[in-house]
Nucleic acid binder design. Structure first.
Lengths: 210, 210, 210, 210
DNA sequence: ACTATCGGGACAGCCCGTTGTT
DNA sequence: AACAACGGGCTGTCCCGATAGT
């Protein structure tokens, strides 16, 4: 498993370029819509080399989504939740980080893993399961923040942290979908605000959305 | 533009079978993942006939998503919002209908238009715009219900009906994505409950999720 | 199943040309050594058309060996064994026909089915089984001639018609192999003579080989 | 030129493993059906090493068939024909040895050289000629036994030793082909018996086949 | 209206062999 | 001696769509 940072350091250069190209192209075009030839062209690498490093297109996709997931790991580490003493404030920190991340140019206001998952879940279980594991890992982080918050302060309205984490995950993925469709990332910001407001309300705090 | 009901009545039989097959296959496999040959095989029609009725694969896709959207129209008509006097209760009626619809077997707990949109928005503007128009139409219905509710009763927390409609749309699409990925439609129900609770709260009503 | 004669009449012309090209090329180069591109080039047909008529290279091979086997059927019918009253003389007639057939230019002094069988029996059971069935069919004809001869005249040395038919089959196939290797079809004639002499001897007749 | 025995002693170990793997794989799959990568994988050697020891796939094939031919040399030496005083009995000794050899598990009831020859004779003259030389060498041994027998005892029916040697060679190769096809080595035993009976008859001896 | 035939081009995957480094 | 990295080219397969005929 490689983090995006590791792509250029721990991998042979060409291999790293291939993974980067795969991420870039599959974000736009999905798995089936991206051809090996395209990846090679973008990475300026021959197909012979491609199949030296990867057994199949599916394999590079596995590597690509691992790299993508490791991108999160970096973001979440940089968020330094431990440095925030109040468990409830940590949740706000999470939304802060998401806002900051998704304000970047369109290419990042999207999730490779969700994109792939929506395309292949019904037809390629290996890839689908991999996506599920990674995305559930992400939801697990959210869930943990919620559990800690519940422990620190009993919510006004009781809730299942798993459900709410799934709610946030779904909302984020759906926001990417709609943003891509409308070609306008605004909806992501709005939706994050509403989600944050909803969580606040669960804890009895009043926070106006937006 | 054809409703699903119209498929068998107003279209030649073979054409209708082709559209049904296209819907069925593209729901699982997406646009690119579904070949004309597959559609023909499933519809028991020759490829010659296919290109007699449709100029291209893209065209049948346009017809298919129109048919899908008309399916909604039927559902929303059947919901008979006008028969519900209280505008706030109409919103509950909407969630009721969605719950009922998405409780059916997996094949329906999904949205053809969202599936296609997420796949082609970045590469096929014509299809992408079509999806956007239809999905925004759906969101428009939600928006109208919210506007009416606001008019009937000032919300406790002010909100932009457009934003909240987009929020619901995103959540529904994201729920489909996650449900497909996890192969478990449960998340849809949970998320609808949370969304409903959120809207209730905007109007100052207290409704426990689930 | 198509006879070679039928190739040009009952099949679409291009399909027939493809089968003929496949036979011609695979006789020289075997199954793996012959590419679809080569077949198309020789038949002056595009690859698109090839895959309109045949699902795979393997399928055209099945058709090709069927066509080849039907070539025998024609030869054996032309031999008119029924017109030869003496069952023992029928065996001589068989060898006559084989001699005549294998005296033709090199391309025919070989057996497509044996060539394919030796190449794929260990790796492609479908093709292997098909070859076996056809070749065993051929051996069955020999066997029947031997059975009839035994019934007409008790042999001097008893023998199992199945074994001797297998012996003749093996010898013919081995002769083709050696002839191809030596680039000299002479060995086929010699070996047929020895085989014929051996059969004669079983029936107590003395016939000098050659 | 290496005997199989020499493979492990006179060659670097890795080179020997490569040759053994090549023999093993090509026996089943032929020359074209066996890839360099497969050979390397089976021999647990990297491709870099392969091309350090062999210039090309063709070269390792030459070495492999030489090794195979040297296997015979060992067998024929072990047969110790000189120790059998009667030249006619030596021929029986030959069939004895063949019977014994081909009774082993299927992997040996086959001839690498014949397999390769039938595949490449028409397309690769270098390999084809090499196979021919080796196989004709084998036939030469048979021929010599026949010449000696003729010298010791005039045959009842005169014959050309070259022809009969070619007959035996063809029969053996054809038997391998049919045995492989039928996945049943029995035919080899039967055919050897018939061949032996035929030779006996040439010398006026009566020996029932089987 | 409906279909068989056919074509150009792209696809993923694998091939054999070279290069340069350790 | 051994090997990782790499490349150019080909393979079988499939795709979408056009054409000509019934």
């Amino acid at each position: 498993m490689y983090s995006i940072a590791e792509i250029s350091t721990e991998m042979p250069e060409k291999k790293g370029r291939l993974v980067e190209a795969a991420i870039h192209l599959m974000l736009r075009q999905g798995f089936g819509g991206t051809s090996v030839d395209q990846i090679c062209a973008e990475a300026q690498v021959t197909k012979g080399s491609f199949f030296h490093y990867f057994e199949s297109k599916e394999e590079i996709c596995h590597v690509a989504i691992d790299a993508w997931a490791n991108g999160w790991v970096g973001l979440l580490q940089a968020a330094q939740f431990e440095a925030v003493p109040d468990p409830l404030a940590r949740i706000d920190r999470l939304f802060e980080v998401m806002h900051a991340t998704y304000l970047r140019p369109e290419s990042v206001a999207s999730c490779l893993i969700g994109t792939i998952a929506s395309e292949v879940s019904a037809t390629n279980r290996r890839l689908g399961d991999h996506c599920e594991k990674l995305l559930d890992g992400w939801a697990g982080v959210v869930r943990r923040l919620l559990v800690d918050a519940k422990a620190a302060q009993p919510p006004e309205i009781d809730f299942d942290p798993d459900q709410v984490a799934g709610f946030v995950l779904s909302l984020v993925q759906g926001s990417f979908l709609v943003a891509k469709m409308r070609q306008d990332p605004q909806v992501i910001q709005h939706n994050l605000n509403h989600a944050q407001a909803y969580v606040h309300r669960l804890f009895g705090r009043s926070r106006p959305p937006g």
